[in-house]
Design a binder for these strands. Sequence first.
DNA 1: TTGGGTGCAAAGGCTTTGCATGTGA
DNA 2: TCACATGCAAAGCCTTTGCACCCAA
Lengths: 149, 149
Amino acid sequence: MPDNQEQFKYLLKQNGLKVTTQRIAILEVLNSRPGEHLTAEEIYDFVRVKYPDIGLATVYRTIQMLSELNLIDKLSLDDGYVRYEISKNDTEETGHHHHHLICLDCGNIYTFQDDLLETLEMRIKETLGFEVVDHEVKLYGHCKKCRGD
Amino acid sequence: MPDNQEQFKYLLKQNGLKVTTQRIAILEVLNSRPGEHLTAEEIYDFVRVKYPDIGLATVYRTIQMLSELNLIDKLSLDDGYVRYEISKNDTEETGHHHHHLICLDCGNIYTFQDDLLETLEMRIKETLGFEVVDHEVKLYGHCKKCRGD
DNA sequence: TTGGGTGCAAAGGCTTTGCATGTGA
DNA sequence: TCACATGCAAAGCCTTTGCACCCAA
């Protein structure tokens, strides 16, 4: 995580932005909960444990910035909330995200990696002339636990 | 479209719902614009051309109903609007939707069909025990037209 | 007749914005 | 010092809800 934080500070400075307590705190919350998909409100609550004076607006503003810097990923579950998680892009170049399995019963979100789409995307480029640079895949269904019950 | 409309009326009656002018009008608007992805407001505007007295709330209520009856599909582009299009499910059983190609330059939405995910979904069921029943795939990129310019 | 449907306006709920104050560089 | 960042509250914006009236069945 210090790596991540250093990268963050560097990115901020490089973009003429300031390194503030609030920004570091928010990044740390997201960084300490990989794989969770937090709403702005949830992030706000976690950050307030250590920094009770932070404002919700700051959380929203910081989240937006982190998203633009590609340090976090957005995920929308159509439940009225936008969720965020720390980005784990190994390959900076592709920027491709992992996919989500969403259980319709318990609401849990599972993630998985798959390169299957690359074949598809290549075919789309050849046949339609459309060049895919990013994708979002959500699979809805019933997870093992819920199917077992 | 009369087929579709008859099916609609039948579905309404079967569910103890009434066939009203407004409901038919909204369905017709969506039916006459396949492949377009309309927001509630846009649907509202189109319907008002013929039925100026309709209320926006009725549009929202009807849209929700149509969605529950699986006559229309929802699509969220994360621009703050939820969009709808008439459903063209050939196979009632699978309920699988087509996929969307979203151009980051002009905003146009292209659709395509592909069965590639079925392999993936089968593998997910085998390895993770997660049974996929629906999916949503959005591919972002640059369309032929915009790449040409 | 009568219970579901509609229109209107108000309320909800998440997110953004304006502005005065605070603070990192 | 000073431009950017923050907190607070207000405003925005899409969507839902309450309620009296209306109209399919």
